[in-house]
Nucleic acid binder design. Structure first.
Length: 301
DNA sequence: CGTATGCAAATAAGG
DNA sequence: ACCTTATTTGCATAC
């Protein structure tokens, strides 16, 4: 409702790919960035939360514990998987003055969402949740409202533990189950993801967070560890091609965008990349080209 | 230094 | 086994 349905065309990635003059949706322009830049808070809160993650009390302490983790800066180019480092001690927080807050988490009307709505095909949770109706129920039965709520206090609880998005991401790779990067954590907290993704992430983050809080309470030497064997299947690490490789691949692509299995094998060998990686590169390249072509129909070259 | 984001690898699902 | 199409997710880097 607040957002301006700007005549912007975005692709599946939500990237702006063009403008459609005929899209005359928007009611008005307005929304000149409300000065309301209310971010959660500035200082790391010391909160007492229950299992549901609801704030039940705030600690008047002002300690700055949580040396939390120590990461090795290594992991340069080695083909070997990076190992995980256990998070450090972080003694239990000494229970200082406890100031109970009202049982009812006085829900703030919270300023309107500052997230504009685009014409993206796959709306993010934040976009959907800030829509007019707010049935909070996604057409696929996903409770958007619930996710929004969780995302909000996930951040609060994370900060309470003195952890950064990066640390959470790394810690997740150490535990069983799918792992996610700092980017993913960030997007989840911002709800800059599709309901489907959010639904998938939520249980993972929830489980991990509960575990982390438990360890923290016990002042365990290990807030998270276990490198044992990471039995779960993790996503393949994203390959970063060198500029030279990209150049070479593009040259091959130009000659033949649909190489045979044999050719792919040769190219892979020549450039010294995994065959599968090269094959996928061609697939993605074709896809990109196709999408780009479609776009051109709507634009003036 | 931590978080946000663009581009594009990797993956899912149906041939 | 590999393609296409649609999407998810992360590296690299901007903020």
């Amino acid at each position: 409702m607040p957002g301006i349905s700007s005549p912007i065309l975005t692709n599946a990635q939500g990237q702006v790919i063009g403008a459609l003059p005929w899209v005359v949706n928007s009611a008005s322009v307005a929304t000149p960035a409300p000065a309301q830049s209310l971010q959660v808070q500035a200082v790391t809160p010391q909160l007492l939360l229950n299992a549901q993650g609801q704030v039940i009390a705030t600690l008047a302490s002002s300690p700055l514990p949580q040396p939390v983790a120590v990461r090795k800066p290594s992991t340069p180019e080695s083909p070997a998987k990076s190992e995980v480092q256990p998070i450090q001690p972080t003694q239990a927080v000494p229970p200082p003055a406890v100031i109970l807050t009202s049982p009812a988490p006085a829900l703030k009307p919270s300023a309107s969402a500052p997230i504009p709505i685009t014409c993206s095909e796959t709306p993010t949770v934040s976009q959907l949740v800030s829509k007019p109706h707010t049935p909070s129920l996604d057409e696929d039965g996903i409770n958007l409202e619930e996710i929004r709520e969780f995302a909000k206090n996930f951040k609060i609880r994370r900060l309470s533990l003195g952890l950064t998005q990066t640390q959470v991401g790394q810690a997740l790779t150490a535990t069983e189950g799918p792992a996610y990067s700092q980017s993913a954590i960030c997007r989840f907290e911002k709800l800059d993801i599709t309901p489907k993704s959010a639904q998938k992430l939520k249980p993972v983050l929830e489980k991990w967070l509960n575990e982390a809080e438990l360890r923290n309470q016990e002042g365990q030497q290990n807030l998270m560890e276990f490198v044992g064997g990471e039995p779960s299947k993790k996503r393949k690490r994203r390959t970063s091609f060198t500029p030279q490789a990209i150049e070479a691949l593009n040259a091959y692509f130009e000659k033949n965008p649909l190489p045979t299995g044999q050719e792919i094998t040769e190219i892979a060998k020549e450039l010294n990349y995994d065959r599968e990686v090269v094959r996928v590169w061609f697939c993605n390249r074709r896809q990109t080209l196709k999408n780009t072509s479609k776009l051109n129909v709507f634009q003036i070259p």
